[in-house]
Simulated scan of single mutants.
Amino acid sequence: MGGLNVMPAALTPATDRLVLAELAEANRPAQLPLVTRIAEILAASPAVTHLLVRGSLASGTADRLSDVDFVVGVHDAHLPAYLAALDDLMSIEAGALLPGWRDSIVADLGGIGMVFLLPHDGKLQQTDLYLAPASKIPALRRTIATASLLDRPTPSITPPQIRRAEEFITETTARPKSCTELLIEHLVLAVLLHKRIRRGQRFVAYAEWHMLHTATKDLIKAALAPASRFWGWYRLDEEIALTPIGRESLADLETAITGPAIPDAADVDAALDRVIGLAERACPTALDGLRDSLTAYRTYLELA
């Protein structure tokens, strides 16, 4: 970690203290205790230069289903190390149930989006962390509405550090997802879809349902045709249907894509059961270290 401290520590300088009073006074969201806890964990690292809340919590329109949405400004030089430590930080200190999902829904704001599922108040709370280089924060603030929780004096940032941070972001977002990452993507999307269904957000549910099917296709390809030269949905039969496991996997995909265009809760649960069974057959190592988390995950979904 190169000496990067990501563990909680006392915030002694006045300039480093979190500004939560304004957020609480503006809307007193039910998620405020979680916002406070996560903010304190994130702000404890000296690599963090800015901490902003965005989305419905920043605008005062949050409801009990709203996610907790942070922008985390990280000094450009420390961004790779901070991202490398983030899963452990969110698991050990914040209690995240699963490793983070590299968000492919969030708009490109010059950083990297990560989504974590945290137990809170008897359910799984979606927590979005958008890691942005400190050099990008001024432009980001002009682009989206945010409420500032922390503005820390930022050490000087050199042009080479900015370039290296940009290269790291490009490489990270372009890297193909592993089978484990794609399985986690299914788990996160299932939580999102249950939220869309409860809110009656049919258009968003349609889009995220298609994303889930695409993640299933990507999981099959990552497991059974990792060196595929074909893009997207092309040549699946030719590449995958060569083995019994491949044919079973494509049958699962066929079942998924011939279902309803907009799911109900039972459809989402069935899709999740199907993809876990698919992973057991096609890429069982993707489940290594996740079985206890999957049991807890299912319990929280049943309680939601």
Results as ranks from 00 to 15, higher is better:
residue 1 M to C: 10
residue 2 G to N: 14
residue 2 G to D: 14
residue 5 N to E: 09
residue 11 L to M: 13
residue 11 L to G: 10
residue 15 T to H: 12
residue 18 L to C: 08
residue 26 A to D: 10
residue 28 R to Q: 11
residue 31 Q to Y: 01
residue 35 V to Q: 04
residue 38 I to Q: 04
residue 38 I to W: 03
residue 41 I to D: 00
residue 44 A to F: 02
residue 45 S to T: 07
residue 48 V to A: 09
residue 48 V to I: 15
residue 50 H to P: 00
residue 51 L to P: 03
residue 51 L to M: 11
residue 52 L to W: 14
residue 57 L to I: 11
residue 61 T to E: 13
residue 62 A to I: 08
residue 64 R to F: 07
residue 65 L to T: 04
residue 66 S to V: 07
residue 71 V to M: 13
residue 71 V to W: 04
residue 73 G to P: 06
residue 80 P to H: 11
residue 83 L to A: 12
residue 86 L to C: 12
residue 87 D to N: 13
residue 87 D to V: 03
residue 88 D to Q: 13
residue 88 D to P: 01
residue 90 M to Y: 08
residue 91 S to G: 05
residue 92 I to K: 15
residue 99 P to K: 12
residue 103 D to F: 01
residue 105 I to Q: 09
residue 107 A to D: 11
residue 108 D to N: 15
residue 112 I to S: 07
residue 112 I to A: 09
residue 114 M to N: 03
residue 118 L to I: 15
residue 118 L to W: 04
residue 122 G to L: 05
residue 123 K to E: 13
residue 125 Q to E: 11
residue 125 Q to F: 03
residue 143 T to S: 14
residue 146 T to Y: 09
residue 146 T to R: 10
residue 150 L to V: 05
residue 154 T to Y: 01
residue 155 P to E: 00
residue 158 T to F: 00
residue 160 P to G: 06
residue 163 R to M: 00
residue 167 E to T: 11
residue 168 F to W: 09
residue 171 E to W: 01
residue 172 T to A: 06
residue 175 R to K: 11
residue 176 P to L: 01
residue 180 T to D: 01
residue 181 E to R: 07
residue 181 E to D: 10
residue 182 L to G: 02
residue 183 L to H: 02
residue 184 I to C: 01
residue 187 L to R: 02
residue 188 V to C: 12
residue 189 L to G: 07
residue 195 K to T: 12
residue 196 R to M: 04
residue 197 I to L: 09
residue 197 I to F: 03
residue 200 G to R: 11
residue 205 A to D: 07
residue 205 A to I: 06
residue 207 A to T: 12
residue 208 E to D: 13
residue 215 A to Y: 04
residue 217 K to A: 15
residue 218 D to V: 03
residue 218 D to S: 15
residue 225 A to R: 05
residue 227 A to W: 00
residue 227 A to G: 02
residue 231 W to I: 10
residue 242 L to S: 11
residue 246 G to F: 09
residue 251 A to S: 12
residue 253 L to T: 06
residue 253 L to D: 05
residue 259 G to D: 05
residue 263 P to E: 10
residue 264 D to T: 04
residue 264 D to N: 14
residue 267 D to Y: 05
residue 271 A to F: 14
residue 278 L to K: 04
residue 280 E to L: 06
residue 281 R to C: 03
residue 282 A to T: 12
residue 282 A to V: 13
residue 291 R to W: 04
residue 296 A to G: 00
residue 297 Y to R: 06
residue 298 R to V: 01
residue 299 T to E: 09
residue 300 Y to E: 01
residue 301 L to R: 13
residue 303 L to P: 00
